[in-house]
Design a protein around this nucleic acid. Sequence first.
DNA 1: GCTACTAGACAACTTGGTTGACTAGTTTGG
DNA 2: CCAAACTAGTCAACCAAGTTGTCTAGTAGC
Lengths: 142, 142
Amino acid sequence: MLFARTFRAMTDRFHERLAGRDLEPLRPAHGYVFRYLAAQPSATAVDLAAHLGVSKQAATKTVAELVEWGYVHRTPHPTDRRAHALTLTGKGHAYLRFADALWSELEEEFAAVVGAEQLTIVREALETYLADSKSEGIRPVW
Amino acid sequence: MLFARTFRAMTDRFHERLAGRDLEPLRPAHGYVFRYLAAQPSATAVDLAAHLGVSKQAATKTVAELVEWGYVHRTPHPTDRRAHALTLTGKGHAYLRFADALWSELEEEFAAVVGAEQLTIVREALETYLADSKSEGIRPVW
DNA sequence: GCTACTAGACAACTTGGTTGACTAGTTTGG
DNA sequence: CCAAACTAGTCAACCAAGTTGTCTAGTAGC
């Protein structure tokens, strides 16, 4: 499948460049966690699980890793004493900025190879298709 | 990532429809095995492993499953007595035809949503990009 | 305020891979 | 022509990333 291979090719490039600079073995799944936590102020592990389309246990495990590495901080939840509010640390935000820069670099390379107008059409087409699809979860479950 | 989500959305649809009709729990990875075996007459497990970008043990395991289900047949290799030549059975070919029909159905739906000319542009753009990328393996390794 | 629900922790298990060691057959260079 | 190096496939131990199931403590709806 063309989309699978393209996804693979892009993430391969991404991690190739990431490997040079960063320390912890951040995996693609982590990227979605960062983005979600940046967007949702006091998200909990259960919220995250729903967003990622995995069990709450799996989400908790991933969060624990990111906390250990210093990307994420767990604070008492403002209104629910069972829960923890998850937020990005400074390191977490820094990583996100770096990743964004890297993705736009890759996108520029894509544009350089296939043409800028084509990239625009590709993006619009995929967004249209996805809007029509309402697929669960984010990760390409294999 | 747009490509990951599109891939996910399409394979979700694919398996939704597959689930209705078929018996064995064929996973997306199997599709690539079928396609490879159909194209490469007396492929071995090691050939397949290289094609898929996994270890030979993993490839062997997958093949064993498909043999058990009657999709693949192992015959003595014509020139190398250590190896087995892998070929699709009638059932294997039948599945492949069915899967092809299903994919073109999905492609038509894609075209119906985003437009036929857009689909053509998307396909060409991704092929151009991939030709420029020489990424290892096929599966979106997560 | 009792009842039903929910966030998160802990544990056992499953899946789809991995690496390592080995056997039997193949290829190559002197 | 044969010994050394290599390769296909098997077996076994292990690992990573998920799963389900059960439990406790806290929350929310009448």
